[in-house]
């Protein structure tokens, strides 16, 4: 009982003591870096539509995504993307480039344990939950959409 009280008091003291992340500078950095990634994506999209005028908008988007994923994976491989991430935080995690980084980085890291047990098993350690929640929530949204469409 005595211990519990002491622990609570100590946790309270620690909470007041720990340095906080400054919200405004980090929000600002993640905003402009995230925005820049989106602008680059739009640029790539426009470029594809200009070079191949006959492809559909849908195909243009797919090509853009593939290109962005490749660029992020490449930057991860040469050790640049983690520097961007350190600076931008959410700004470089939320776009699809962050997703690419989260799959590439464990693949590089666990290469030493072999292809099956290293790369294949560990590849989705970070991205796995994102995929699970993405699929699960799209199911829920689809269900809601179906119910609404009944009326």
């Amino acid at each position: 009982m005595e211990d519990k009280k002491r622990n609570e008091a100590y946790n309270k003291y620690i909470k007041a003591k720990i340095p906080k992340t400054k919200p405004w500078p980090s929000l600002f950095n993640s905003f402009w870096v995230g925005g820049l990634i989106c602008v680059i994506g739009q640029g790539i999209n426009d470029f594809y539509l200009w070079v191949f005028p006959n492809i559909s908008q849908q195909t243009g988007w797919s090509l853009t995504l593939i290109t962005l994923i490749f660029i992020a994976a490449f930057l991860t491989g040469i050790g640049v993307y983690d520097q961007i991430g350190k600076f931008a935080g959410g700004g470089s995690i939320v776009p699809i480039t962050g997703f690419s980084n989260s799959i590439t980085s464990p693949s590089i890291e666990f290469k030493s344990e072999g292809i099956i047990y290293g790369i294949c098993v560990k590849m989705f350690t970070i991205a796995g939950p994102v995929i699970v929640f993405g699929v699960a929530s799209s199911m829920v949204v689809g269900l809601i959409y179906w119910i609404i469409s009944l009326f």
Binding site: T21, T76, I84, G85, K86, N101, S105, I108
Partner: peptide, 17 residues
Amino acid sequence: ERQYRFPLELGNQRPPT
């Protein structure tokens, strides 16, 4: 880092503590 936290090349931020 690999045992306790995240892969080295993952672009995340470290908490201030």
